[in-house]
Design a protein around this nucleic acid. Sequence first.
DNA 1: AAATTATTTTCAATAAGAGGAACGAATTTC
DNA 2: GAAATTCGTTCCTCTTATTGAAAATAATTT
Lengths: 208, 208
Amino acid sequence: MKKVISDKVINRLTLYHSILTDYIDKNIEYISSPQIADLLHIDNTQVRKDIALLKYKGKCKVGYQVYDLKNLIEETLKFKTIKNAYIVGAGNLAMALAKYDNFEAYGFHISALFDNSYLKIGTIINGKKVYDIDRLPEMAERQDVKIAILTVPRQFAQEVTDFLVKSGIKYIWNFTPCVLNVPNFVQVWNENLIGNFLQFTVNHDIDN
Amino acid sequence: MKKVISDKVINRLTLYHSILTDYIDKNIEYISSPQIADLLHIDNTQVRKDIALLKYKGKCKVGYQVYDLKNLIEETLKFKTIKNAYIVGAGNLAMALAKYDNFEAYGFHISALFDNSYLKIGTIINGKKVYDIDRLPEMAERQDVKIAILTVPRQFAQEVTDFLVKSGIKYIWNFTPCVLNVPNFVQVWNENLIGNFLQFTVNHDIDN
DNA sequence: AAATTATTTTCAATAAGAGGAACGAATTTC
DNA sequence: GAAATTCGTTCCTCTTATTGAAAATAATTT
């Protein structure tokens, strides 16, 4: 797998995108690299280099065209490509994610949720139905879904992961605080919620 | 601000920590760098180097002592230091976060939630009370809380942020898909949920 | 209208950092 | 005692970030 765009750049591009969205709301036509850089407290050369990766040319003394640049980022990051995904484990976090319509803006479509509790199976959250997890293998194959968002309690994480792997899931977005053991052909992204924020509290002195 | 430990290392350390927790549950006394590396699909030299940063010495041919290493990581990442935080905006995501007891393991304590809806003010979620957001400045000063977890709808993000800044909040864990404009003495961590996972879907070909 | 100024992009070069390979040293096992 | 495994470290490579001109263009001044 060759990385066309590095992780760090992708992350920054999503932030630029969010700024651009805001500028469009405000009907501003141009944005400059120093403007973006100031908002994010990063270096403006960084911004220009990231944008240069997209082969996009700005206008001297004016900056970049907001609308075009936003579209280009969406194209590069494939926001318009629909990525179907299942949520596995219909707990609190799953509910929040299922109700979080913002996913769609990035091309993620939650097709269904899965759980093993009879209290949850059959319920509908934000138009998305909760199915018995036993049905996942069949549905995943039929709907050709390869992404699972894992939100089960930690003690079931590995067990359910094994089940997902057998079901043909290829990408697991792991919200559990566990390191999952998977074969090489399955990719895991550990959404280390707390770990990310720690980067913050470790190096600063938070004295309460 | 000098970074004693880089972001990437911190992120990996949290993953090691999660593996170590698992090993303790299984009553295994020692763990080696290749074992950790295999689970995370990274290089074992990397693991050794990260651990070397902690000034921890392993035992040749045996590995590292699970219990000690886990404690050392917790100490380094300040898991035992209680970090009080408020959740601002009592929506779906806030509910999920408030119910997510795992935060405590990392030293994060949610002291209270805040909202402006009379439907939510006064309710109690997982033992944590929802207060009128007007009370935040006074409470933050009295309780000396400097961390806010922002989960309001995107259209109110900036407005509420300005309010938080005026209230003396110094660290904002931003779950909204907005880039917040803050003064230099306030730090924002953009928890770019989708952005993180995109790193995944952009460079792989997910064909559905 | 021409010249100047200020801002911004672009290109090039340097510096810093992270990841991976390799090797000696140590220790357990056979 | 020999073999195998693992740690710790050094070195090298590749990536990423920063710095420093130079070119371009809009706005301002003369």
